[in-house]
């Protein structure tokens, strides 16, 4: 009962046979070896697995690989271009917006989508905008700072 899917991940086309129940998160981690997408919960609460699906942030533990057939996916591994960190990656580093790093890929992907939708969010809007992503280490403060600093750079 396998189905063929073609998914463009970080600019590369991948065609694979998958079980219909295979989660996109597992497709990325196990089929493609893109282990930057972390899994922190069973119920789509933590957001560690957030990726961009056709440009929109989704929790890849709640998307089936077959649902992503024909789509483009960007993971944390695909965010830097030509060895140049994405501004959010740089800002997370500059602002100490991570400690253990486990939530970081999802947090950065969610923030990418937040800034796409809302290029100049206030601090409160950033806090609300990242409501779907949990961090147990930082207390969020430096994450908010990092996102805000990127908004300031580009506005």
């Amino acid at each position: 009962m396998r189905q063929s899917v073609t998914i463009n991940v970080n600019g590369q086309r991948h065609t694979q046979e998958v079980e219909p129940r295979l989660l996109l998160a597992h497709f990325l981690r196990e089929r493609l070896g893109l282990t930057g997408t972390n899994l922190g919960c069973d119920t789509s609460q933590c957001g560690a697995c957030t990726v961009l699906l056709d440009g929109q942030a989704v929790k890849s533990c709640t998307v089936l690989a077959v649902q992503a057939d024909g789509s483009s996916v960007t993971t944390i591994e695909g965010l830097a271009t030509n060895g140049q960190l994405h501004p959010l990656q740089q800002a997370f580093w500059d602002n100490h917006a991570l400690q253990c790093g486990f939530c970081t890929p999802g947090m950065i992907m969610a923030a990418t989508d937040l800034l796409r939708r809302h290029p100049d969010p206030t601090e409160a809007e950033i806090r609300t905008g990242l409501d779907g992503n949990l961090c147990r280490c930082t207390g969020y403060e430096n994450i908010v700072k990092a996102v805000r600093s990127v908004a300031e750079q580009s506005s």
Binding site: G36, E77, F92, L98
Partner: peptide
């Protein structure tokens, strides 16, 4: 941080 922010933890 460079490894974590690039998904290489």
């Amino acid at each position: 941080d460079p490894r974590f922010i690039q998904g290489k933890g």
